[in-house]
């Protein structure tokens, strides 16, 4: 389990991370989400002990992280690269060997991952021969080949085509199902929404909101139902629990009173209209995020983002 307590880090004149606290639980996919320059990578680098925090504590199973703990962690950094002249298998074996001494198991894992990503024929080719997407997959394998309990993925999908992106997403979900603790950062809300159990939204080094995806959506969703029907729907605005309606030529948006269940509304209109569509509009994380960032921006009235991530 990883726990951050009030962690801060500043670079000359820039507050990159400002009093961040969170904890990840085993077997959970934890999303560290925020725009470019929000402090995601700096946070992960501090957990990895690559950067030292200025203040605050980073605990690993309740104690400060040690060199030995690094063996249990897999890391896919945002700034990726591999030794260009070295063969794919050699690079993977080398990076894996820094984490584990079980060379047989390591090679087995490498082989199965190469198989999964259709990279078997590239095994003995130098890294420089790979395309960008392929080398990104190799990097992914480097992070997971030693079968770590905890895996950090920093922007794992950046620069991938949709097919590879899906392949990676499935792999991450798979790893989650195997009980690995996964912490991953992204600025693409869509990915976070599909993968994460827990969300930590960060902007300008500060926490904006955190919690499980459902919680967040419940907390920030407008309670809106979209209806499509034929018949006279004017009675809807007078139903209990309805705050207001917006009538459009082809559909109607119903804003419910906070806490009023859409199920009750459905019960009330059932039989009185010929209903073609009834949709509870779930607010996308994207919308919540944009709203939150805009709000906080208005509050701080700061300049353009220039923090190092």
């Amino acid at each position: 389990m990883i726990e951050l307590k009030n962690v801060s880090k500043s670079f000359t004149g820039l507050q990159a991370v400002d009093g961040v606290s969170f904890r990840t639980r085993p077997g959970e996919i934890f999303g560290l989400i925020g725009p470019n320059g929000a402090g995601k990578s700096t946070t992960i680098r501090m957990i990895m002990n690559i950067l030292a925090p200025d203040s605050g504590e980073i605990l690993f199973d309740g104690r400060p992280i040690g060199e030995k703990d690094k063996e249990r962690i897999g890391y896919l950094p945002e700034e990726r690269g591999l030794y260009k002249k070295v063969k794919v298998n050699e690079v993977l074996r080398y990076l894996g060997s820094l984490k584990t001494d079980d060379r047989a198991a390591l090679q087995k894992n490498i082989d199965s991952w190469l198989e999964k990503f259709s990279l078997v024929e590239w095994k003995d080719k130098p890294v420089e021969a790979l395309s960008k997407g392929m080398s990104q997959k190799v990097q992914f394998i480097a992070a997971v080949a030693h079968d770590p309990e905890i895996i950090f993925f920093d922007e794992p999908f950046s620069g991938l085509d949709p097919v590879s992106s899906d392949l990676l997403k499935d792999s991450i979900l798979d790893l989650g199902r195997q009980g690995k603790t996964i912490l991953f950062s992204t600025h693409i809300m869509d990915h976070a929404e599909k993968i994460c159990d827990q969300i930590f939204l960060i902007n300008r080094g500060k926490e904006l909101l955190s919690g499980s995806l459902e919680e967040i959506k419940a907390r920030h969703g407008r309670n809106v139902v979209t209806l499509e029907f034929s018949g006279d729907g004017r009675f809807i605005r007078d139903l209990p629990g309805v705050e207001q309606t917006m009538d459009y030529p082809r559909y109607c948006e119903v804003q419910l009173v906070e806490g009023y269940s859409p199920d009750l509304l459905l019960k009330d209109i059932c039989g009185r209209l010929s209903l073609r569509k009834f949709e509870v509009e779930a607010p996308s994380l994207h919308k919540i995020f944009i709203g939150m960032v805009k709000d906080s921006e208005n509050l701080t009235k700061g300049g353009p983002h220039d923090q190092a991530s």
């Binding site: 990895m48 063996e71 950094p77 690269g81 990076l95």
Partner: peptide
């Protein structure tokens, strides 16, 4: 540094 391998290596060694 330029090939960006450094972060992966540093995630394992000092």
């Amino acid at each position: 540094k330029s090939s960006k391998t450094v972060e992966i290596i540093l995630s394992s060694v000092t």
